[in-house]
């Protein structure tokens, strides 16, 4: 079977898709090796969802190829549907029905024999800590439990490739950690996972390889550590006590290793990428701020987050809508951002 020679569980080549005048995808290519977790990272409207919709046979691309386990998502959609699971938003759940009924119905629709459905339902319920709530209507479950039930539903057919579309958006921190734990377990058991997220820390925590997309293009990809290196090494961060001193503080620390500081007008925080020589940079920053007579708090030196990476790659912050940040917008880094 060609399946064994297939280099990747997911292979996407030059995908283009437009909705009217909106170009959702403008030539996206990437591969997901079998058994790995790959994070598809980007802000709202970047094209993540369109890519997943094409791979899960819900939308046809205008051009390009999307293969799942060497099967074409357009021409061989029926085979692809037997191989994949799609979860994320709690869309498989009928809230009036119980957790058990929901799983059994999805199992039946996956064309499994009844005894298999019953057996897998029971094991998924206990594995996802839903056994006690199994016979309560799904609407009475917490948000985290509903998400887990939804994920369980997508696993009942034991998919080889799992698409997780923003699986923790809207969950509380505990629900989020629980979901992360489950994703790690699934990955450890060998399931290939393509995870879309707008959260940098989520991609960092779960994915061994991250594909950053913005405006329908892949703008960078690599291991989380590689991407962080590209953001310019360590990051120094402090907050000014007086908001009026923000511009002065940014000016005082500019010119360190050739990277411009990023002042945030809303929080009063200044972020500077300081490259490799971080200890010296820290001393220099303290000196300059002291010389300028600017009082600060919370001066820290940290490893770059993927937020910093996104900023470095695209010139805009990925999550400003979500977290209410409104840092200064630089013009996109242009050709430097092309992958």
């Amino acid at each position: 079977m060609s399946l064994d020679r297939a280099p990747a569980a997911i292979l996407v080549e030059e995908l283009h898709k437009s909705f009217g005048r909106v170009h959702a995808l403008r030539g996206v290519s990437f591969a997901v090796p079998r058994g790995t977790v790959v994070g598809l990272l980007g802000p709202n409207g970047a094209g993540k969802t369109t890519a997943v919709r094409i791979l899960t046979t819900l939308t046809r691309p205008d051009s390009g190829r999307a293969l799942v386990e060497a099967r074409d998502a357009v021409r061989d959609a029926a085979s692809v549907r037997r191989l994949i699971g799609l979860a994320g938003q709690a869309t498989a759940i009928q809230v009036e029905l119980t957790a058990r009924e929901n799983l059994e119905i999805i199992g039946r629709l996956t064309h499994l024999p009844r005894p298999v459905v019953r057996e897998r339902t029971a094991s998924l319920l206990s594995r996802f800590d839903l056994a006690e709530a199994a016979d309560r209507p799904a609407r009475t479950l917490s948000g985290g439990m509903q998400r887990r039930l939804d994920l369980a539903a997508s696993l009942i057919g034991e998919p080889a490739v799992l698409f997780l579309d923003e699986p923790t958006t809207g969950l509380d921190p505990r629900g989020r950690l629980h979901m992360w734990e489950i994703v790690r377990e699934l990955s450890a058991a060998g399931t290939t996972i393509l995870l879309t997220t707008q959260y940098m820390d989520e991609a960092d925590a779960l994915a061994g390889h991250i594909i950053v997309i913005d405006h329908g293009r892949v703008i960078a990809e690599g291991a989380p550590e590689e991407l962080k290196e590209r953001a310019g090494g360590d990051v120094l961060e402090f907050t000014v006590l007086e908001r009026s001193e923000l511009a002065g503080a940014a000016a005082a620390v500019s010119g360190l290793n050739g990277r411009e500081p990023q002042p945030d007008g809303e929080t009063g925080r200044v972020t500077v990428a300081v490259g490799g020589a971080s200890a010296r940079a820290m001393i220099e920053v303290v000196r300059r701020l002291d010389a300028a007579g600017i009082e600060t708090e919370g001066l820290v030196l940290r490893r770059p987050s993927l937020d910093d990476v996104f900023l470095a790659l695209t010139g805009h912050q990925a999550e400003h809508e979500l977290r209410g940040r409104s840092g200064p917008r630089r013009r996109p880094a242009g050709s430097a951002a092309e992958s």
Binding site: G157, E158, T191
Partner: peptide
């Protein structure tokens, strides 16, 4: 579960034809 996941579930699917499944 992934050990068996690489196999198409076709073998487990019973004999109903396409119309039967519909």
């Amino acid at each position: 579960m992934a050990a068996s996941a690489q196999v198409l579930p076709a073998a487990r699917v019973s004999r109903l034809g396409q119309t039967g499944w519909a």
